[in-house]
């Protein structure tokens, strides 16, 4: 494993009121590349992902113990600016959620709220990175909601890229898409992984095997195994991982 961890969790616990959702996670996600978090429903993989940009803060009754480090600095420290954190750590959701604005305004939204310069250049570059620039032609001012779901999801990714994040968190980004659309998003992820640290939560083990460089297997709020994807899928160290990836449950 490379030593330069982009995100590191130290004995991370999370409770939803009395429910213990994360139980002492120790995980070091390497810089760049794609890390997949897999596991059966309810194992806490989305919860774990949402501790990386502190989206769990929005849930009443959620409590965090332990720590999460981004580039070695705690993101749960008091002095932290949440807006700066979320600018560095962007998130793509399960269902594409473009704003009910034009394509252009969707992408310009981030730069505007963060007061960044060169709006047009940013919008253009972010759309180019996801391939939407050439596909949409001059349809900038159409409502984002009129696009098909796959383009909506890529628009959501463009929207993040416009604020130059370092980490992209993806919470089952393809679960609402058909196989062809899924393939396009996966291609995009692979194209982006040399620049960004991508963490993807997925239900789909084939997807994890196809795109990820590292894989973390979670079960009932615990991290069972974390290693290179090849290793996790071919020679899992833990028998529970083997049972899951061989399809015995989950």
């Amino acid at each position: 494993m490379p030593t330069a961890a982009k995100i590191e969790t130290k004995d991370l616990h999370l409770w939803y009121r009395t429910f213990h959702a994360l139980k002492g996670i120790h995980l070091a996600i390497p810089s760049r590349g794609i890390t997949a978090i897999i596991g059966p429903s309810g194992c806490g993989k989305s919860t774990l992902l949402r501790t990386f940009n502190r989206m769990n803060d929005l849930i009443p009754g959620a409590r965090v113990g332990g720590d999460v480090l981004l580039d070695g600095a705690s993101i749960y420290r008091d002095a932290l600016s949440l807006t700066q954190l979320r600018k560095r750590v962007g998130m793509v959701f399960q269902r594409p959620n473009p704003f009910p604005l034009s394509v252009y305004e969707n992408v310009a939204y981030g730069p505007k709220i963060h007061g960044m310069n060169d709006l047009h250049g940013r919008v253009r570059r972010s759309l180019e990175q996801t391939g939407l620039w050439s596909e949409l032609g001059d349809r900038w001012h159409v409502s984002a909601l009129s696009l098909p779901p796959e383009q909506q999801q890529r628009l959501c990714i463009s929207r993040l890229l416009a604020v130059e994040p370092e980490v992209l968190l993806m919470d089952e980004p393809c679960s609402a898409l058909d196989p062809i659309a899924t393939a396009r998003i996966e291609e995009l992820m692979i194209a982006l992984k040399s620049t960004y640290t991508i963490v993807i939560v997925t239900h789909n083990m084939q997807q994890a095997a196809r795109v990820s460089d590292y894989a973390a297997y979670m079960l009932l709020g615990e991290l069972v195994e974390f290693a290179e994807t090849d290793k996790v899928f071919t020679q899992p160290a833990d028998s529970r991982t083997e049972e899951y990836i061989s399809g015995r449950f989950g």
């Binding site: 310009a108 709006l119 047009h120 159409v142 409502s143 909601l145 009129s146």
Partner: peptide, 24 residues
């Protein structure tokens, strides 16, 4: 209808095609 994307959105900002700033 405009919000649901059934109507052409009237841009409140110049289209990126029009803009030819230094970074463009």
């Amino acid at each position: 209808r405009k919000l649901r994307g059934e109507l052409v959105y009237v841009p409140t900002m110049p289209s990126p095609h029009v803009a030819t700033g230094p970074g463009d």
